[in-house]
Design a protein around this nucleic acid. Structure first.
Lengths: 206, 206
DNA sequence: GACCGTAGGCGTACATCGCACGCTTACGAC
DNA sequence: GTCGTAAGCGTGCGATGTACGCCTACGGTC
């Protein structure tokens, strides 16, 4: 008796997005340190090892989380000068990540493996190309460096955060102290934008 | 009989630096993932829990490692225009960290808690002040963002690394592909410096 | 409706982690 | 010699990621 060569087996009950959403829920609720295969499995109402049917290891799960967080980023640039276009795209990534602060680490760590992250890079390159920027290698890398660094800086030691307050009392670093005091006058939104605008202006001649 | 109010107890046999050196040796030999209290204790020929006499927790040990790595950074700026001074200081941090690549993560994570990291910030502020840069808050934060981002970028996906090669074959991102190909023509040293110079130039009017 | 190959799902187990806790011991002043 | 202090360590706990192998739901074919 001849049977089917390819009988249809039990269908999958989860998508990668389902898993990413569950993981993100865990992170948002209990912090990045609480992100564990067991916790995600509980969130999904499955056994721990079931997750490994969808994901090779923890790292791959993290990539899916990053992709989920970045999936909301609108890549269509506004009708403005190219510098403003880049600033806008940069601010959108920053906002997407700030909506899930604990993901910062993952977003940077898995930048190269996240499709949505690469899509963003491609969008930036489109703007740079249309703008006629010649040295796009330097420009793109510098923009990525600044954006990732700034997002992280804002996470680890926000301008109006505890770290700044502490430094403002340290007499062993007089200039840092003075600057920390001045930091109170700077709007957090301006910080990111003005730094990036400076970088882009310096990049223009390239 | 009246005894001493403060009898001298057993003296300490280790300094924080000893511990940091042992930890760094573990990291350099077996990678950051291998950095464990147990491993450091073995390296020092002590019991695991003895470390906790010198350090509150793992995080504090990590800070000491960062301080050790940054302790070699010369903070004396060269006799050059202020932009070049900052570039030099930035390159020195980058080189210090690149000498122990796996420490990158820690260096960024504990930036605020490392004395040597703060010293570096103070040195940068001195340069900015002498140069007459007005908005030093924005300037310093932008420089830190760029430097940390770039160091990390170079670690996660170096210009001439595997990631670039992979992207150079991805037809779904034509511009990234093209740029990845061009990346082979750019000297890695130039990348860091040129991006920073662009930022500093844009920062000058501030 | 009986059958069966595939792949989904899960239970158990292991090595490893940070660290809480409490005991033992080296030290130096009296 | 005596003793208070703090250094040093042994044991144990609750986590972690994941290897391995078993059980079972499914949806074809007959």
């Amino acid at each position: 008796m001849v049977y089917a060569v390819n009988p249809m087996p039990r269908p999958r009950s989860l998508t990668h997005e389902d898993i990413a959403k569950a993981a993100l829920k865990v992170i948002d609720r209990d912090g990045l340190a609480a992100l564990a295969m067991r916790a995600v499995a509980v969130e999904l109402g499955m056994g721990t090892m079931s997750l490994y049917r969808y994901v090779n290891d923890r790292a791959e799960l993290e990539v899916h989380v990053v992709d989920l967080v970045l999936s909301t980023v609108d890549l269509k640039p506004p009708r403005k000068p190219w510098q403003k276009q880049i600033v806008t795209l940069a601010e959108r990534v920053r906002d997407a990540i700030k909506a899930h602060p604990e993901v910062v680490q993952l977003a940077i760590q898995h930048r190269q493996d996240s499709v949505n992250s690469l899509r963003w890079g491609e969008a930036i390159l489109e703007i740079l190309t249309k703008a006629g920027v010649v040295n796009r290698v330097i420009a793109l890398r510098a923009i990525i460096a600044y954006v990732t660094g700034a997002i992280q800086l804002d996470y680890r030691g926000p301008l109006h955060g505890r770290g700044t307050d502490i430094i403002a009392t340290r007499d062993d670093f007089p200039l840092l102290k003075e600057t920390a005091a001045q930091a109170r006058m700077v709007a957090p939104m301006d910080e990111f934008r003005q730094g990036l605008e400076a970088l882009l202006q310096g990049l223009s001649p390239l």
